[in-house]
Design a protein around this nucleic acid. Structure first.
Length: 352
DNA sequence: CGGGTTTGACCCGCGC
DNA sequence: GCGCGGGTCAAACCCG
């Protein structure tokens, strides 16, 4: 398989029937550090890491701009934090956020870079992302077995039973949610392709939004990673993609060594390093952000907010070759990464 | 025919 | 307890 091949077999974006072919949204160099205070436990997640790209797939942590190693030692992340990268490749904005667990934030204006959080409370995350193995995958919600609930319901509803012999679910057992990572993309393409193969398993209308939300599941056997894709109602030009879980396999279209980014999976729950590939490993199509993107939260607030020592080498790609070319020529990508505290963080700070 | 999408039905959690 | 919304299932359908 050719390196970094842009698949043309991505099914049309199933997003509301709109949007043509799938798109490639390749994050090829991301390093995030989340540090928190206030006694919160912090969760350190990385986009590609959540995608199942692990340390062994990439080179040691490296600053592609300064060509010097970066060693980050993030404090424990907040248990309920979810990271979100807000990427606007039209306006050259990149916003990194920790998703607030407060659902109210979903109404925030994405344009202002405040993070949305259509992602619900993730404090239920019980799986240690540091162990991205089959066990964590198998504990995903859709693989929870046992159930008396549904069988019980069936006892009272023969019609339902004959109609849907649904999988059992364990009563009184909270569904274990995988860590999630969401990011917002300014794109007319709904289904952003990250190199993995996804199967759409559902679509739901979103309240107060004319745009539906699509649910995808990784098609690889044994991999329970899911992702949701929805277009923001506030700003229809933005697409919110939320990943849940970690791939238990390499990216099918990204051979080893071409991965642009990963976080040492052992970093979860304990300080560790983030991994960024050496620049020479980046493939031609990978956008390399300027040094200014090597953001490190060094503001006075860094003691209270997550600091993202992050930079993105990031280039959305599209099946459409024309679009691809466009993206390639976008030198202004990610020049301005904005770190914004989430509502919750802001609230906590106010309380202090 | 196999794999992916569509879509209506259903379950569950949560807020009121 | 009830209703709502999110998430999932699976039959039907589509397509290469």
């Amino acid at each position: 398989m050719a390196n970094m091949r842009f698949p043309d077999d991505i099914p049309p974006a199933a997003f509301g029937g709109g949007g043509g072919g799938g798109s490639i949204f390749d994050m090829a160099g991301t390093s995030c550090e989340a540090s928190g205070g206030g006694g919160d436990k912090w969760e350190t997640l990385g986009f590609m890491d959540l995608l199942g790209i692990h340390q062994d797939l990439v080179s040691p942590l490296f600053d592609s701009f300064n060509h010097s190693p970066i060693l980050l030692s993030p404090p424990p992340p907040p248990s309920s934090g979810e990271l979100a990268a807000v990427f606007d490749h039209h306006h050259h904005d990149m916003l990194l956020n920790k998703l607030d667990t407060n659902n109210n934030t979903k109404q925030q204006n994405l344009h202002q870079g405040s993070l949305l959080s259509a992602v619900p409370e993730s404090s239920e995350v019980l799986n240690n992302p540091a162990t991205p193995n089959s066990s964590s995958i198998s504990s995903s919600s859709d693989e929870v077995t046992a159930n008396d609930e549904r069988s019980k319901a069936g006892d009272h509803d023969d019609e339902y039973r004959t109609k849907k012999p649904l999988k059992p679910k364990k009563k009184n057992q909270k569904i274990q949610r995988q860590p999630r990572f969401a990011f917002i993309t300014k794109s007319e393409i709904d289904h952003l392709d990250d190199g993995y193969r996804w199967r759409k398993y559902g679509q739901k209308a979103v309240k107060n939004s004319p745009y539906p939300r699509s649910y995808y599941r990784c098609t690889t056997v044994g991999c329970g990673v899911k992702k949701r894709v929805e277009r923001s109602s506030d700003d229809p030009t933005t697409v919110v993609t939320t990943y849940e879980g970690q791939h238990s396999h390499p990216c099918p279209i990204m051979p080893r060594g071409t991965i642009g980014f990963a976080i040492d999976s052992s970093s979860f729950g304990s300080p560790s390093s983030f991994i960024v590939p050496q620049p020479q490993q980046l493939q031609p199509f990978v956008y390399t952000s300027p040094p200014s993107l090597n953001i490190t939260a060094t503001s006075s607030n860094s003691n209270h907010h997550p600091s993202f020592n992050a930079f993105f080498q990031y280039k959305p790609r599209f099946n459409d070759q024309n679009s691809s070319a466009l993206a390639l020529g976008d030198h202004g990508l990610l020049q301005d990464i904005v770190l914004t505290p989430t509502r919750r963080e802001a609230r906590e700070e106010e309380d202090q």
